[in-house]
Design a protein around this nucleic acid. Sequence first.
DNA 1: TATTGTTATACTCTATAACTATA
DNA 2: TATAGTTATAGAGTATAACAATA
Lengths: 159, 159
Amino acid sequence: MSSVTERDLGSSLGTLFRAYLREVDLAISGTLGTPRAYLVLAVVAGGDCANQAAIATRLGLDRTALTHLVDDLEARGLVERSPDPADRRSRRVALTERGTRIHAELARRVTLVERRLLGGLSPSEDTELRQLLDRAAMAVEQRRLDDACAIADDLEVLA
Amino acid sequence: MSSVTERDLGSSLGTLFRAYLREVDLAISGTLGTPRAYLVLAVVAGGDCANQAAIATRLGLDRTALTHLVDDLEARGLVERSPDPADRRSRRVALTERGTRIHAELARRVTLVERRLLGGLSPSEDTELRQLLDRAAMAVEQRRLDDACAIADDLEVLA
DNA sequence: TATTGTTATACTCTATAACTATA
DNA sequence: TATAGTTATAGAGTATAACAATA
């Protein structure tokens, strides 16, 4: 036997992620439509994603999903789209003043949700888990970008 | 600033879980309908969940979802439902011979997917992350059971 | 009265393809 | 020809409520 843990990796990830979605859904109730909208808001607040495609990649979502999510945030007056002068195909997404306030409040609530979610772990384990997840997710994101480039390269070779 | 990591916990969990689903979907292609069906198959193979409700709790799913998932697995001849003699409301779910073979093959493929998914981590970090996720998920599952009991107790007090 | 499982239903999530406009 | 974004659509995921059988 080689198994160290009881659960499949996918089972643990799924259980935690679904619990996260359920609890964030309660935490943002009345302020945003869905938990995904909070994640988008948080990425926009981070300020290191230049356009919708970058936000989608960061969250592991399809870019078609971003359109509706940003539509919703914009309708609520929390973000604004503006054309990128350097590339007129691209749209920058930035928090409005109201969005900044709302994000600060929601981030406070979600922090509590996250602590509760990892309540089975000690504080140092909590930090350890977040760091490992962060690095693993970053590697996945990078691999997806590489794959996209590889596909683009293949197509170029064929062309 | 108090943030240690770049991403929200939910963002990392979401990115990894969606990537897991995408890759498992490819790995099981043609054998099972969806990645969730694999997770159910794996729990059944584990043998420590007595009925559908237990499987649902283990996976953090609603019990109504289990009906359809088990229907599908049964239609493919991979699991069998049988009434529990001790409680005739309850249905045991067990692998068929064919289900045992299929599960073994799929588990092999999913193991490769999982290693690839955590490719950004060292082997010891991989193990560490799985153990932490496992414990955090177990705590969430336990808390959900406790909450259900608490709600039941509340209702009993009110009754 | 509560629980297991089922069915029906509705809403959300996700991905694909087709389209516009830019590059 | 490729990319950013949009739209339409369909399939999968998820949760709620109502129900039957059983405890």
